[in-house]
């Protein structure tokens, strides 16, 4: 789904910098993510992709610069407030509740959306709406048959699917996925692409991805991050034709 000319900006990074001590990891990134688009950030290892995600999602506060989510500044807010503002993220290293059931993993997020975050006076089993919505997400990520199993017992690709499911549960309109297909086989990757495509329908997606195949088949636009700087943002086709990008990152692989 290509962005129409009238679309708004869902997420805007304005001159973001981030330093760890004397080392500047993010060097003034400007980036507009349009509402409803699927956008990938690519770049060589150590370019700062994960740091960028951590800044947007509130793990760290940027050293300088501003981040706007639907026009509201979110830079430096704590993660839970950013999530409540409408942004959810997944993690590169699977980050789930290993000792809880798959169903419960998802329900934690659904409960947060329903505003019963610290509910102490009603059994959760009786919350029909919550449980129905959880079952729905469970079905959407294709884990219906695994609902009662421990999350820690799932296969790797199932855990990745759960990871994506968890980012959907809080109802955020802006989804950040950090290398959702990393470590998957060809076949698993195909499935994951389909999953991401369907579940992000109507939402805004920003993802870090190494696999160019995934980027091409999924994303409307691509930004290239090299050494903490975005050197180009464009459609996948034009990015792969971009000389500077080829030199900096894609190398022979893309040229061939």
């Amino acid at each position: 789904m290509t962005a129409t000319p009238t679309t708004q900006t869902a997420l805007r990074l304005a001159a973001i910098t981030m330093s760890f001590g004397p080392i500047e990891v993010i060097k003034g990134v400007n980036l507009d993510i349009r509402a409803g688009e699927r956008h990938a950030v690519i770049g060589p290892n150590g370019a700062g992709k994960s740091t960028l995600f951590n800044l947007i999602s509130g793990m760290f506060a940027p050293t300088s610069g501003e981040i706007f989510l639907n026009g509201n500044s979110i830079a430096g807010l704590s993660p839970h407030l950013i999530n409540r503002a409408g942004l959810a993220r997944s993690f590169q290293i699977t980050n789930i509740f290993h000792r809880m059931s798959v169903f419960e993993n998802l329900r934690i997020g659904v409960l947060a959306r329903h505003g019963v975050r610290y509910g102490l006076f009603r059994p959760v089993a009786g919350m029909r709406q919550v449980n129905e919505e959880t079952a729905e997400v469970l079905a959407r990520v294709g884990l219906e048959s695994r609902g009662h199993d421990l999350a820690g017992d799932l296969t790797y690709s199932e855990q990745r699917a759960l990871e994506i499911g968890m980012t959907l549960t809080t109802g955020a309109e802006v989804i950040l996925l950090d290398e959702p297909t990393a470590g998957m086989s060809r076949e698993e990757t195909e499935k994951a692409i389909e999953l991401i495509r369907t579940v992000t329908e109507g939402k805004t997606l920003l993802m870090v991805e190494h696999d160019m195949g995934v980027v091409f088949s999924l994303c409307d636009r691509v930004s290239v991050l090299v050494y903490g700087d975005i050197i180009a943002t464009d459609t996948p086709e034009r990015i792969s034709a971009n000389r500077a990008v080829q030199e900096a990152y894609l190398g022979e692989e893309a040229a061939s």
């Binding site: 993220r89 509740f97 419960e104 975050r117």
Partner: peptide
């Protein structure tokens, strides 16, 4: 209760809980 389940989630993975709002 929902909070009781959240308690278990905190034990398992506090970071993820924060990113779920």
């Amino acid at each position: 209760t929902p909070f009781g389940r959240l308690t278990l989630a905190l034990r398992d993975n506090e970071q993820r809980v924060r990113f779920l709002g």
